[in-house]
């Protein structure tokens, strides 16, 4: 294992901003794994820390195959994590909206550029990322509908779902999108949580990366019999929306099955505890996403279902 500083920026009063990477093996740049890019992505940095530990073990046991290099960067934004702010401390910009970066540009453009120079050229790129809305997810792999990441390859993670995301204009500055522009097959891994550590979810995420690397012949690891991932276009998900704001009372959990007409959640009047709205399932489906904050706004897709 080679631990080294990928990118560094001097602070005025704070310690230097450092992006630290862990390299394993030598040879072809096979896979790069990036953890948190936002300050609240605690589960994402934790998943990477488990991978750092696991790869160290695999390397010691001679189970990283010859000719393959693996790079893990647990966080590209420790400054924001340390002050519990989602975006960049000074100007609130999102590093994951700055790729491929610009070395003469503004701070987060420079960070993106410095990091991207180190992480481009890999055959596969895996990013642990998070959704901007608070909620619990079914673990899944996301790929963009433009580019050459294949759903069949994404299925090798062994997670229950592969989501194909329709590219929106603001996606074009993300790491996932730009990895693909520069010939890296990119996969975004969404685990169960963001701001809290979920041991089971992180364990599943680590195993999914092991499954993938084994399938690609990068590590020696006995992959269990995997279920075939369900491939879903994000535009085909069934969103269940609130029409009222209030206290959100979920009646189901992510991963559960629901039937048509089943009550999914109540919205309560925050002063009088009366149910002002009940959300029902419009279809027989699996619960893919559910809002997990105590309050909700009107017009919000608090539940997403996959048929």
């Amino acid at each position: 294992m080679n631990k080294r500083i990928i990118y560094e920026l001097k602070g005025m009063y704070r310690d230097s901003f450092r992006v630290t990477g862990y390299e394993y093996g030598t040879g072809e740049k096979s896979v790069c794994i990036v953890g948190s890019s936002r300050g609240n992505e605690v589960q994402q940095v934790y998943c990477c820390s488990l991978l750092v530990k696991k790869f160290k073990q695999l390397e010691n046991e001679g189970r990283i195959k010859e000719g393959h290099k693996i790079l893990v960067i647990p966080s590209i934004n420790p400054y924001s994590m340390n002050i519990q702010k989602r975006f960049w401390p000074v100007d609130n910009t999102d590093i994951n909206r700055m790729f491929p970066g610009y070395d003469m540009g503004e701070t987060t453009q420079r960070i993106a550029d410095g990091v991207f120079k180190e992480i481009s050229g890999y055959k596969y790129g895996i990013q642990f990322t998070s959704f901007y809305m608070p909620g619990d997810f079914m673990p899944h792999v996301r790929i963009m509908d433009e580019g050459f990441s294949e759903a069949s390859v994404a299925g090798q993670f062994g997670l229950p779902y592969v989501i194909i995301r329709k590219v929106r204009p603001y996606d074009t500055a993300t790491l996932n999108y730009n990895w693909q522009v520069w010939d890296t097959q990119a996969f975004s891994l969404y685990t169960t949580t963001t701001t809290r550590i979920d041991q089971n979810g992180s364990g599943q995420a680590v195993l999914s990366v092991m499954n993938f690397l084994a399938a690609q012949g990068i590590i020696k690891y006995n992959v269990p019999q995997l279920l075939k991932a369900k491939v879903v276009n994000d535009t085909d998900m069934v969103s269940v929306r609130t029409s009222e704001s209030g206290i959100f009372e979920p009646l189901i959990k992510a991963g559960g099955k629901v039937t048509t007409g089943q009550p999914l959640a109540n919205i309560l009047n925050p002063y009088e505890a009366e149910v002002i709205e009940t959300l029902y399932s419009p279809v027989d489906a699996n619960v893919f996403f559910i809002h997990n904050e105590p309050l909700t706004y009107a017009n919000t897709a608090v539940i997403k279902l996959v048929q």
């Binding site: 001097k10 100007d91 540009g105 987060t108 420079r110």
Partner: peptide, 8 residues
């Protein structure tokens, strides 16, 4: 007044 490296 406070700038990071790269600040405009």
């Amino acid at each position: 007044p406070v700038v990071d490296e790269g600040s405009l």
